[in-house]
Computed example of a mutant assay.
Amino acid sequence: MSDLHHTARGQLDSRAARATARLENAVNVREEVEDKQHAADERTAQLKALRLAREGKSP
């Protein structure tokens, strides 16, 4: 009975570890996506400012 309890406990620990790893991965992916979106937004704003300056308009 002790071995069964130990095995079940190990499986629960493994599931918890996998769940934690998935959560950490999701957070990292979300941060990466947000960083890329922020960079794209900045580039878009810079390009818009350049275009407006070229056309003689202020942003």
Rank of each mutant, 00 (worst) to 15 (best):
E24F: 05
A19R: 10
L12H: 06
A16M: 04
V29M: 08
G10D: 14
P59C: 01
D3A: 07
A39F: 09
R30H: 09
A53I: 01
R18M: 03
Q11H: 05
S58C: 02
E34C: 04
E42W: 04
K57C: 01
L12E: 08
T44E: 08
A16C: 05
E32F: 13
D35F: 04
K36P: 00
Q46L: 12
V33K: 15
R43Q: 14
H5C: 02
S2D: 09
L47N: 14
Q11M: 12
R18F: 02
S58E: 07
V29F: 12
S2I: 00
D41M: 01
K48L: 12
G10F: 03
N25H: 15
T7Q: 14
A49V: 04
A21S: 12
N25Q: 15
L52E: 15
T7H: 13
K48F: 11
A53H: 03
M1D: 14
R51G: 02
R43I: 02
E24T: 15
N28Y: 13
V27Y: 09
Q46G: 01
T20V: 08
K36E: 14
V29Y: 07
V33P: 00
A26E: 13
D13I: 03
E34R: 12
R9T: 13
E24P: 00
T20R: 10
N25A: 15
V27D: 07
A45M: 05
H5I: 01
D41T: 00
P59D: 10
H6S: 12
A26R: 15
M1V: 11
L4E: 14
L52I: 02
A21Y: 02
H38L: 05
